[in-house]
Amino acid sequence: MTDRITLDRDTIASGALQEIAAKLGGLVRPLKPEEMEASLTATLAARPRPDPDCPDGDDIWVFAYGSLIWNPAFHFQERRVGLVRGWHRRFCLSTVMGRGTPECPGLVLGLDRGGACKGIAYRVSAAQAREELLVVWRREMVTASYTPRWGKVDLGSRRVSAILFTINRADAHYAPGLDERTVAERMATAEGALGPAADYLFNTEEALRQEGILDVSLERVASHARRLRNQK
Rank of each mutant, 00 (worst) to 15 (best):
N71T: 07
G57W: 01
G115L: 12
R89Q: 10
Q18N: 05
L17K: 05
F63W: 11
G100I: 08
P72R: 08
E205P: 00
D215S: 07
G98V: 01
T189E: 14
S94F: 03
R181C: 05
W61M: 04
L218P: 02
L133P: 03
W137Y: 11
E180K: 00
T189A: 15
R113P: 01
F63T: 03
L68H: 13
G110T: 03
N168Y: 13
S94D: 14
L178F: 07
A207D: 09
G15V: 05
R158Y: 10
S125G: 14
N168L: 11
G192M: 08
G114M: 07
D10T: 13
G212R: 11
T189G: 01
L24V: 01
A190G: 06
R229P: 09
L83G: 03
V108D: 06
R79T: 13
H173E: 10
R49L: 14
Y146I: 03
T11Y: 10
A197V: 07
A184F: 13
V84G: 12
L214R: 07
A16N: 01
R149F: 10
L83C: 14
R227K: 13
D51N: 15
R90S: 14
L7G: 02
S161F: 12
R49I: 12
A46S: 15
R90T: 09
H224K: 01
E78I: 05
V28G: 02
L201Q: 03
A198K: 02
E206D: 14
A13F: 08
A116G: 06
